[in-house]
Design a protein around this nucleic acid. Structure first.
Lengths: 165, 165
DNA sequence: GCTTGCCCTCAAGTTTACTTGAGGCGGTAG
DNA sequence: CTACCGCCTCAAGTAAACTTGAGGGCAAGC
């Protein structure tokens, strides 16, 4: 259990910039303690947390979403094996959904664009279930809102247009 | 054939905001013609282009990368079946790489984090080939730079730190 | 004739995710 | 004792990807 890692050590081990790690603390993704001099001290488990952050970001998750995911882990005690397993299971579901999405996209590309069918109205990629153009907003179904619902729907106001990603 | 679609019609069919489409034109992702009154007129093929843009974005591609991908299509004539097939094939490679990446991640999650192994130094997720910590920058290998190299490496200047995504 | 709707441009604002810079503390190596 | 290194805070800057707003044009409907 060591005396804790400095921010510089964590940066080196994760490949993150020191400033990024401080930012993540501000965003509540890690919560290091402080030593007498007020310097941050991290635990090993924090490296894992940060690795998870980096990976989740690669998959397109926003910081808010990642925070929600990480909320499943206890911040008071060091996460146990069971904690991580729970996390991993949640995450696995998301990953599987995403993989399935990509596979579908790949197959659609193969079958539709690949074959050169240019009749967009009934194209499998653009409009798989043959809902006539004008009914739905577009190829949205392909972009199924996987985990965008993690950050409270926000019932009020602006149902503008493209607020995805 | 047909007198072309207005920007509003394209917006409705793609689900994009009108402003976004104008922005994409500025960025060179579509190149509509203009009618006598100076209004944009789009072709059917542009809807396909824009659908592709949306999908590629979901996969994490930047506009510059998408522009590079789309460059494979002719902007002078309407893309032929062969053009799209070529595109799709390039794209398929990227997709497959990404899918493989996600699958690996999922399996690593199952096998490593899922099992609760807390020894980060030799964790498969964190450090699969058992290169001791301190050698590499972190879990970077998992984040393999798939298609980040589309936008000319830019040899000069700031090799700062975390400039991914 | 005037209002309404869709279109136009151009400048400025917004969000997310960070980085950079100024100004300062505390420990250790020469 | 002075340098230097790594750490600190806080404010401001940045890039990407759009949106919003001001000010204006053209055509159809009442």
């Amino acid at each position: 259990m060591a005396r804790g890692l400095t921010i510089g050590q964590v940066a080196e081990r994760t490949g993150l910039a020191v400033s990024a790690i401080r930012y993540y603390e501000e965003e509540g993704l890690v919560a290091p303690t402080r030593n007498d001099a007020g310097q941050r001290r991290f635990e090993r488990a924090d490296i894992r947390r940060l690795s998870f952050v980096m990976i989740a970001q690669q998959l397109g998750a926003s910081i808010a979403e990642i925070r929600a995911q990480l909320a499943a882990l206890p911040r008071s005690r060091t996460p146990s094996a069971a904690d991580w397993r729970q996390m991993a299971e949640n995450y696995r579901t998301d990953l599987n959904r995403r993989i399935a999405q990509l596979e579908k996209l790949r197959d659609d590309l193969d079958g539709c664009i690949g074959c050169g069918c240019l009749s967009l109205e009934r194209c499998a990629l653009y409009n798989p279930q043959d809902r006539a153009a004008g009914l739905g907003p577009g190829p949205r179904y392909l972009l199924g809102n996987s985990s965008a619902d993690l950050t409270a729907p926000e019932t009020s106001g602006r149902a503008s247009s493209t607020k995805g990603r």
